[in-house]
Amino acid sequence: MSEHTPTLESAHKAQDQAHSHDHHSDTVTMPLLGTVTVYGGIYTVVFGALAVLTALEVLIAELLKTEYEGLTGAMRIAALLGIGIIKSLLVIWFYMHLGKDNRILRFIIGVPLIVVLLAILYLMAVPTGPGGGYF
């Protein structure tokens, strides 16, 4: 075997390095914030974002804790749900690598999410009252 013939082990290593090189870097380039170097790279940055968003969620919930109905109540719910969805997307995209993996996986998880969302909206739309509603 010549010196340059790839062995199975080196081929595996090369493949793994090519696949996840950017996940291993401690330097992250972000919109607005520019380039940041932090231990853990993008994973630590995402954790920081999750922590800040959670603190923001709790702050909103506590500041408006008497607002459960009406327009302010609806805005409070929209803000909290929006932050919750952003947090979930951050985990799916970066920690579960859905942004990098095969696109078919996005359909596998995306379609059931859409279907159950439609089902929940239907259940919410069923009028309550005599003989009606799902409560």
Binding site: G40, Y43, T44, V46, F47, L50, A51, T54, V91, F94, Y95
Partner: peptide, 9 residues
């Protein structure tokens, strides 16, 4: 949330 970070690390 921290456990998820530890997992990916």
């Amino acid at each position: 949330l921290a456990s998820s970070w530890a997992m990916v690390m």
